[in-house]
């Protein structure tokens, strides 16, 4: 939708409503977290800082990567799967860009520290934080 591509009008309408609804949830969630994060205890914050990237990456895989069953049904070769999810340089970049907003939130809530940063990198979801929600990532990001 961002690129202004032609889409079936019904699909477009559904996506439009979905995006607007999600934006409200995300908006609420961000504010809630920013409000409550400063109250975290040191230990809890440290624990969260390493749990968050792991959970986010796992969720991302759950949502984006087709299941083994689906892979078989669609007849996608293993090598292609490997490239797409997340080995090829384009996929790596796509993955990192997906997390720009989450990195921003993690930064704002004090969940980025030297240890967790390394974890983000090991999971392949490091990079620059967005400056604001849904800022398009640049080639250099």
């Amino acid at each position: 939708m961002r690129a202004g591509d032609d889409m079936h009008p019904m699909l477009q309408r559904i996506m439009q409503i979905h995006v607007a609804e999600e934006a409200r949830h995300i908006g609420f969630a961000h504010q809630y977290l920013q409000h409550h994060a400063p109250k975290l205890k040191r230990r809890d914050r440290a624990a969260l800082s390493v749990i968050v990237p792991v959970i986010m990456k796992w969720l991302c895989n759950e949502i984006l990567v087709p299941s083994k069953q689906a892979q078989r049904d669609m007849g996608i070769p293993d090598a292609v799967m490997k490239d797409l999810y997340w080995d090829a340089p384009e996929s790596e970049k796509f993955l990192r860009d997906l997390f720009g907003d989450v990195r921003m939130l993690a930064e704002e809530t004090g969940l980025l520290n030297p240890v967790s940063r390394r974890l983000w990198r090991a999971l392949g979801i490091d990079g620059r934080s967005s400056r604001f929600r849904s800022q398009p990532a640049s080639a250099a990001a």
Binding site: A20, E21, A23, R24, I26, G27, H30, Q31, F132, R133
Partner: peptide, 8 residues
């Protein structure tokens, strides 16, 4: 829709 993204 009042999501506040613009304000950020």
């Amino acid at each position: 829709v009042g999501c506040g993204a613009c304000a950020t």
